[in-house]
């Protein structure tokens, strides 16, 4: 169960030699303090397809042990758990990461055993798929809205909240041009949200065909959410 409305859940673990996890922790610390490098940050913003994501480093001795009856883990590697909630299909997501922020991906995953690099794409896709888990249950509080839909809706809400008091007291003659200016300022915020049939009909084996067929079947002129 990896799909909930427009959102897709990826869950993935990759092994890392314990001494390398300290390098990755340092990288995350630097990114956390200084922010994502500007170019990658801008690319991520432009992509705008991740709702929430996380990287979790689990030390080889860090798996919870809650009773004496539970066997002690004896692992060779630390593990990095990666969870993401994103829009689009799995292949689109991995493909975009590989194309748009290959350096960023390499900085995070190059410490993992067997990581082939984010480019070329085919071994990168195989590596992610090999280390991925199917989710057993997935919940999304806003299934009809993509990340972009939500960011645009929040922008509209902010601007509308400011426009309402500013337009109060205007005469009808003054209101009309003020409203036109307001409308022009929010024209990118007017995506139509709702359940997207591409996500509902998603299927690994026929991913492209389903998406294309659905796209072709859409009524002309329908405003589609990003």
């Amino acid at each position: 169960m990896d799909v909930a409305g427009k959102s897709f859940a990826i869950t993935n673990t990759t092994p890392m030699p314990p001494w390398k996890t300290w390098i990755l922790r340092l990288i995350f610390l630097v990114i956390g303090k200084l922010g994502v490098p500007k170019k990658d940050q801008q690319n991520l913003v432009n992509l705008s397809f991740i709702h929430f994501a996380r990287w979790v480093i689990i030390p080889r001795g860090g798996f919870p042990r809650l009773s004496n009856a539970q066997p002690v883990e004896s692992l060779n590697y630390d593990y990095m758990l990666f969870c993401s909630n994103f829009n689009g299909s799995w292949k689109q997501y991995i493909d975009a990461f590989s194309e748009v922020i290959p350096g960023g991906m390499n900085n995070i995953w190059r410490w993992s055993v067997g990581y082939p690099g984010s480019q070329p794409l085919t071994p990168f896709l195989a590596y992610i798929e090999q280390n991925q888990y199917d989710n057993d249950y997935y919940y999304n509080a806003t299934p009809g809205a993509s990340t972009t839909d939500i960011l645009r809706a929040l922008d509209l809400q902010r601007k509308l909240t400011a426009f309402v008091p500013a337009s109060r007291g205007l005469s009808a003659v003054e209101f009309e041009p003020a409203f036109d200016r307001f409308l022009a300022s929010v024209q990118n915020d007017l995506a139509t949200t709702g359940m997207d049939t591409v996500a509902i009909a998603f299927d690994f084996s026929t991913e492209t065909d389903v998406a294309d067929a659905d796209h072709d079947a859409r009524p002309a002129g329908r405003a589609t959410a990003a």
């Binding site: 995350f28 929430f52 990287w55 939500i150």
Partner: peptide, 13 residues
């Protein structure tokens, strides 16, 4: 006791 610290969380909003 079951919680593992999330090393690097991210959220668009």
């Amino acid at each position: 006791r079951c919680q593992v610290t999330s090393t690097f969380p991210f959220g668009a909003y």
